[in-house]
Write a protein that binds this DNA or RNA. Structure first.
Lengths: 208, 208
DNA sequence: ACGGCAATTGCGCGACCCGCAACGTTGCGA
DNA sequence: TCGCAACGTTGCGGGTCGCGCAATTGCCGT
């Protein structure tokens, strides 16, 4: 995301098509960037590949960087699906752990492959990094709001839900980064998420 | 930062002047953005105010956004000063807590005021957000490397140091965000940092 | 079926990004 | 002290981008 409005809960064909267009553009941008390198991609190329006009590309994204990074959108909203169904008295950190690990476990081989490719592309092209970070920040926001809603706190000023959200999104980020940097891929991504949460639950004391 | 190279350890007049120029440009950019709004600031204006040519502004920063956000640089490297002097057997989280809280405590009234202004500017101008996030990511990187160095782990693949870094930088971020959103400013920023670390140490269990 | 509304498009302009080459200053060793 | 090599700064130029505006297209609901 990074751009535009809150994801509409897809009413009508109209909304659906809009989302599709967005994905198409993002995917086109990503594929071109991976093939040609970030610098050699222009908005026109992206537009051509996505069967829209250059102007439309700009309508959906501020910049080509934002478009590239939005490819294969692992949307925060999607990742948190199921959180509200967890028992209200459960510790929020446990709910998050469960839901996030579950979500990640559900990702297909192809999704995972694209995720890895995306992370590696970001590593190669530093100017993508800010936009990637903004995505993690979106996840953090979504978590913060969900947690605050459960605990009845004010999402803006409550330190605890903020800390929780920061820690949980950091866990996801950590798992992904370690997974990407581990050539051998000895462990499953969702297992890495679990391990990251283990660290959190143990107060980050060095007893690994 | 977000841009350029690792901060040189200021040898020679040359390096010093370069850093000064950078700061001057960033400050000019920030002040203009705060006065006129992000959209109405041009590189030429920034250049004029910093007494350099527009081309030089581009030499220092990829974009005006990056320049604005770099104002009053609370550099990660600076924030971690003192970490290496902590006893080697101390728990890394405690070292971080101590050093970061100390650093923050050392910020002057003016620095704090600019920090608040900067955060609020970012809130008003969403396209600054990715760059702001990249700054926090830089802090995270610095922490990760420092921690891995102490524990002798590989900074790239070690999950624990990554998690630690993510959590610690999230603590700083949390403290700052809460502090900014708290109109009354009832608590000191460094106290908020301490509280965030308290949450971490207690494994984020909801017993506040 | 049709009226309205939202998405898409083309145009145009001002800003931006960056390679290149010229210029001036700095720092260092002879 | 002097001179040269290295480096920061600048102007220029061209390609790209971001976006306001207005016209057009095509879907949607009644």
């Amino acid at each position: 995301m990074t751009d535009a409005s809150p994801t509409p809960t897809e009413r009508g064909l109209r909304e659906r098509k809009k989302i599709l267009t967005r994905q198409t553009i993002a995917t086109a941008a990503f594929e071109l960037a991976e093939a040609n390198g970030l610098e050699d991609v222009t908005i026109s190329q992206i537009a051509d590949r996505a069967f829209v006009s250059p102007r439309t590309v700009s309508n959906y994204f501020h910049s080509k960087e934002a478009a590239i990074v939005a490819a294969d959108d692992n949307e925060p909203v999607t990742m948190l699906m199921g959180f509200d169904e967890r028992p209200t008295d459960e510790a929020p950190l446990l709910s998050l752990r469960t839901v996030l690990a579950e979500t990640v476990r559900g990702w297909s081989k192809e999704q995972l492959e694209r995720l890895r490719a995306k992370e590696q592309l970001v590593d190669r092209s530093p100017s993508l990094l800010p936009h990637r970070m903004a995505q993690y920040d979106e996840l953090e926001d979504a978590i913060r709001i969900a947690v605050a809603q459960r605990t009845g706190a004010d999402p803006e000023t409550d330190a605890f839900s903020r800390m929780m959200a920061g820690a949980a999104s950091a866990a996801v980020k950590t798992a992904i980064r370690v997974w990407v940097n581990t050539e051998a891929d000895p462990e499953d991504l969702s297992a890495l998420v679990e391990r990251a949460f283990d660290d959190l639950e143990s107060g980050l004391s060095p007893e690994h």
